[in-house]
Design a protein around this nucleic acid. Structure first.
Lengths: 338, 338
DNA sequence: ATGAAAGCGCTAACAT
DNA sequence: ATGTTAGCGCTTTCAT
């Protein structure tokens, strides 16, 4: 291991110049002689000189790195978000430091700290499901680090935000079931301390109200993962039978797909006996049998938009810009499950 | 924006001590007076002091960051790898800088450079499909940066490696089809410049040979993505019909699932008419209809093992350890598609 | 046109 | 037990 990184000083010594001259030559400073520039540049190229990003960041007090805190990379929505962020970030010369909270509050706190320690220029964050105390983020925020929340936002903090219009999306999904003739509709919901959980439930309720269908609280069941569905399948099947359910709105695709599988193994046909719709439109929706109707949540756009809002702050330091909330409206993707 | 990071110097000035005393007090240096230690620690706590990771790295000539170059985060296998890496890395005090090459050679080159610029302590890499020239990696390697290749390795470079026994896995998958009575077996294969493409094809051929089935080169079709399957479905269906295919081994799950869908819409029943098996065992395998038989590729273990090998080098700098190749053998996961 | 020196935040060898 | 100094790699002000 001959860990040999060439430094400015090395070049200066060999070329018998001062570090400052080398530095200036490399960045085409007008004061420097053309000959010298050529000499330095050629040599730097030859020895494969690369400035030390750490030293640069320390000096400039700017890392050109932005931090990203994301619940789970495995979810298609979130990995699309990452792509949206990266595509924009790289173009503008920023690196992205990705931290996966794994839906774990403790980890999120550590991640936030790590990002601060590395002096990232800004933070993009979607909070974990288990986070109820936001002081770690509030802390970073009050420390002056520009932040943009996306998807799972923190309502207490006045920041830029990018969200999906979950209420509208849920309304679209539920209304679609109603149009297809369903009146007894089950909603598999996410925890109510999450904005998305609350909003999607509200959208469901709103659609029922708009169509003169009475809301039955028993038809709103907290169940938001594939595993969760299987672990409570007895209860669900019982409920579906007793309440004569004909439509199900799952708070996300994997929950909807899991419930289809539970229904099928209990002998129900989809969409004939029961219609099912999800939320998100990940790749699974197409693969499911039957292909799942759902509303499309725009991951890539979410990431891009969040990065755009952050860049706007970073490129205009000191200038006060009003915080904005970008709302992305999901579209209905009808397939064969409804 | 009151970007106020408290520094050691700030603390020293306020407490009327020297920076070195503060530094030592904070890390419980034996020379420092208990009183002073308490004073410093209490104050540091109060003002929420956090050492600047950049300065530390620059000073120590060690970033405690490892770089990861990965083709596509959206793939379940790769995101599992990330989890395996992170779980181990965090425990040992390392951060992971994730770069997504998007299967793009140019991007991979840039990513490698960015990691070098940031002076990562080591690099974990799985090369992109489009990479045929490895000089960017060779370069980093010769610069003395410890590297571990996983899954998609570079055969030219003598390094630690973690690979799936693709040959054995493919043999297991193909043999399983043969056991189930298939003799005319189609293989949807990956590009042959990729080790995994070559190995999985070899395993397929090996299984045929072992069972006295003649290899027909026309039954090996380059087709390794979902989109690819749909774009060439005419050709595939024609081939399947003409050659009386009864079994298909897809080089990965999504290809296998896509071909099942193509077959079904052409009127075939699975597994009655044609049996299909994949490779990888991502979450889609369970969701597919019928649930896909496949061989299980161990993403989490791959990541963990790669990180373990890297840590071994990092923790023993200067000590020469023979390079090792860790081979993970996939297991058959039989479901309803065979 | 080039160099010397200071400093970004931190640590450690060397005083005292 | 504490302080002084130098230096990690770089830039930039201020000489010359």
């Amino acid at each position: 291991m001959k860990s040999s990184h060439v430094t400015l000083k090395d070049i200066a010594r060999i070329l018998e110049l001062s570090p400052s001259t080398v530095s200036r030559a490399l960045k085409d400073h007008p004061d420097i002689n053309e000959e010298t520039k050529k000499l330095v540049k050629t040599f730097a190229e030859k020895v494969n000189y690369r400035p030390n990003a750490l030293a640069l960041s320390l000096r400039r007090q700017k890392t050109n790195t932005i931090g990203l805190i994301i619940p789970e990379i495995v979810h298609h929505f979130f990995s699309s978000v990452i792509s949206g962020i990266e595509d924009l970030a790289y173009g503008e010369g920023y690196n992205v430091m990705i931290c996966q909270s794994n839906e774990n509050y403790q980890r999120e706190v550590i991640d936030t700290q790590a990002l601060i320690d590395h002096r990232v220029d800004g933070i993009l964050v979607s909070v974990s499901k288990t986070t109820r105390d936001f002081s770690h983020l509030k802390n970073a925020y009050e420390n002056g680090i520009p932040m943009v929340f996306f998807d799972r936002i923190c309502e207490d903090l006045q920041t830029d935000r990018v969200i999906t219009d979950d209420l509208k999306g849920a309304n679209i999904a539920t209304s679609h079931l109603i149009e297809k003739g369903c009146t007894k509709i089950l909603h598999l919901s996410a925890p109510q301390h999450l904005v998305i959980g609350k909003q999607r439930k509200e959208g469901y309720i709103q659609a029922l109200n708009e169509n003169g269908i009475e809301v039955d609280e028993e038809l709103i069941v907290k169940c938001d993962t594939r595993d969760y569905v299987f672990s409570m399948q007895e209860h669900l099947l019982k409920l579906i039978k007793e309440k004569h359910i004909t439509g199900i709105f799952g708070v996300n695709d994997s929950t909807a797909i899991a419930v289809m599988q539970v229904l099928q193994s209990a002998g129900y046909s989809i969409p004939e006996d029961i219609k099912v719709i999800g939320f998100g439109d990940g790749p699974n929706a197409n693969i499911a049998y039957p292909p799942l109707s759902t509303v499309e949540q725009k991951g890539y756009e979410t990431g891009r938009e969040a990065m755009r809002l952050l860049l706007q702050r970073l490129e205009n330091p000191g200038i006060e810009i009003n915080f904005s909330t970008k709302v992305l409206t999901p579209n209905l993707k009808q397939r064969q499950s409804t």
